[in-house]
């Protein structure tokens, strides 16, 4: 059995304590990266994307938004603004959010800030659709 490490996913509203896991894949801002036991201590910024956790033969996935990962010798903490286990994702709502953001982007905007916000919303919705729809 390969070495394991402790993993916690911490959001402002909930803590998912995954316990000892074998492998983690997280969405870094420069692309997804994998973590196994014995990783160098690091702090990595995370983008909207999918978090994948492998525990023995069990796999868990989350749809997560921005945050960061803190990797120490004791384990990994993922601090993200939201993380939804795959089973909890409401595809209908995600689709609605997707359509809304799409429509928002198609309109002209006076303020670029609205456009940026709509783009982020779109990204979030797409991520949830992708993770939940698998």
């Amino acid at each position: 059995m390969a070495a394991q490490f402790q993993l916690e996913i911490i959001t402002p509203t909930q803590v998912f304590d995954e316990g000892a896991v074998d492998y983690l894949r997280a969405p870094g801002v420069d692309g997804a990266f994998g973590v196994m036991a014995g990783h160098t201590a690091s702090i990595m910024a995370l983008d909207i994307g999918e978090i994948k956790v492998v525990k023995g033969s069990v796999e868990a996935t989350y749809a997560a938004t921005q945050g960061f990962a803190e990797i120490t010798e004791n384990g990994v903490q993922l601090l993200v603004e939201s993380a939804e286990p795959k089973a909890d994702i409401d595809l209908g709502r995600a689709q609605q959010a997707y359509d809304r953001a799409k429509e928002h982007l198609n309109q002209k905007h006076e303020e670029s800030i609205d456009e940026a916000r709509a783009e982020v919303a779109l990204k979030r919705a797409m991520n949830r659709l992708r993770v939940g729809g698998k």
Binding site: G28, V29, D30, A41, S42, I43, M44, T72
Partner: peptide, 8 residues
């Protein structure tokens, strides 16, 4: 107290 690697 640790030397972290920062990404990016």
């Amino acid at each position: 107290n640790q030397d972290y690697l920062f990404e990016p």
